[in-house]
Design a protein around this nucleic acid. Sequence first.
DNA 1: GGCGGTGCGTTCGAAATCGAACGCGAAGGC
DNA 2: GCCTTCGCGTTCGATTTCGAACGCACCGCC
Lengths: 245, 245
Amino acid sequence: MAHSDHNPSAVRNGLLAALPPEDLARLRPRLQPVELPFDKTLFPADGAVEAVLFPESGMVSLLATLDDGEQVEVGVVGREGLVGLPLVLGDDRSLVEAKVQQEGTALRIGAAAFRDEMEASAALRGLLKRYALAFHAQVTLTAACNTRHPIEQRLARWLLIAHDRAGADEFPMTHEFLSVMLGVRRPGVSLAAGVLQKAGLVRYARGRMEVTDRPGLEASSCECYHVARREFARLLGAGAAQKPG
Amino acid sequence: MAHSDHNPSAVRNGLLAALPPEDLARLRPRLQPVELPFDKTLFPADGAVEAVLFPESGMVSLLATLDDGEQVEVGVVGREGLVGLPLVLGDDRSLVEAKVQQEGTALRIGAAAFRDEMEASAALRGLLKRYALAFHAQVTLTAACNTRHPIEQRLARWLLIAHDRAGADEFPMTHEFLSVMLGVRRPGVSLAAGVLQKAGLVRYARGRMEVTDRPGLEASSCECYHVARREFARLLGAGAAQKPG
DNA sequence: GGCGGTGCGTTCGAAATCGAACGCGAAGGC
DNA sequence: GCCTTCGCGTTCGATTTCGAACGCACCGCC
């Protein structure tokens, strides 16, 4: 990614980068660059999905809303994927909310145009079906992980995921956000984060998190992180699998 | 379903029933009836998926295996769906294990033949993409549900799901199995099940569970059951959505 | 330079769940 | 009819997590 920063026309989204040149060339004119401002809701829970977004940077969370109004993170999308999976699978509504957790940019294509492109390109269809499967695997692992793994391991996992998306060792991340992502109380995060910090794996202050020992953090995480990453690599190729978490 | 029992040629699988007659007619000769014996592993975790199964009765669990070897239920398939989602999305391996939890029968089609049929039928492709989305929603809800809901509500939810698949008020179901499905200890199930029994909602003994107050059980369940069911109905139509849970 | 909001450390009692064990009774095999 | 196995009730202490609260330090704002 380092050299692509100097070339504004380079493809920074992993899925787009995995497309054959001719398919990408056809798709490209219909993609519009958009900002992903922090905390923006891209589409609400139970709402319409009007476009597909291919993030080039930043991080988007998918949040399920429960009966009591509480939200739980069920998946994450960065530049390895896309936001708007229902459109890939022939629907135009989403059960979950999509919300920007790290600011960034994305390439946007409206629902109708996207449908056209899906019909026109077998490569696009094949790629996005595999992405749907990889994302499904991520959610599946999250379901198991949330059930069986203690807070500290899950925290390490999400920090790795966020670290991958951030493109830097330091990135904005409050305990409050992490508590929603993990589906636990905020003090639970503070406790677990304190352990990781004392172990020298991370450092944090006032909404900024810094990963200081990535290998150590990986060792502290449950295997769910690595399994999901391996699955992405298998399905989308080593090239497309840009640290999916 | 009552009258179709008398007609062996009737379509009892919800997905197949939702196909246009001509698409079903083409698919049908390639479907072979198979048994789903209790406890059989249809495909192992991390193993190859050699066929798609359309259950006509019974219940199949999808289980994620964690690092410690423990398994957690992440999804369920009955006659409303299919087993072998990776083949629908262009892959031939599965991260999760598929295991029969209630015996039954299914219609089977090999991977290669299934691929042919997918290419030949736009209706089949559209239907199964929507099923993939509905199943994805089920797993998503399970992830949130496992994180935030207490055992008793989750137990009620799984009993409703099992009740739907069983086609009878009484069906085989041990606490041991339920503990795996919920990802909790077995005594936790015994405790929660005892509460439901004392409340007059269920009755059980030696591996047989009987639902005695379905509306009461629905009231005791978290909303995840109803949300998933609604999502199935929305995506697959009221006809196809045969009590998906 | 005061002031309010935010992010975080910390505490506490209560509740849920764990993890392991023991016993009992019914079902099924011999 | 005996015996093993299985399914379940139950107990116990330990651990985790909850849920709510308080206080403090830092930042941005005026």
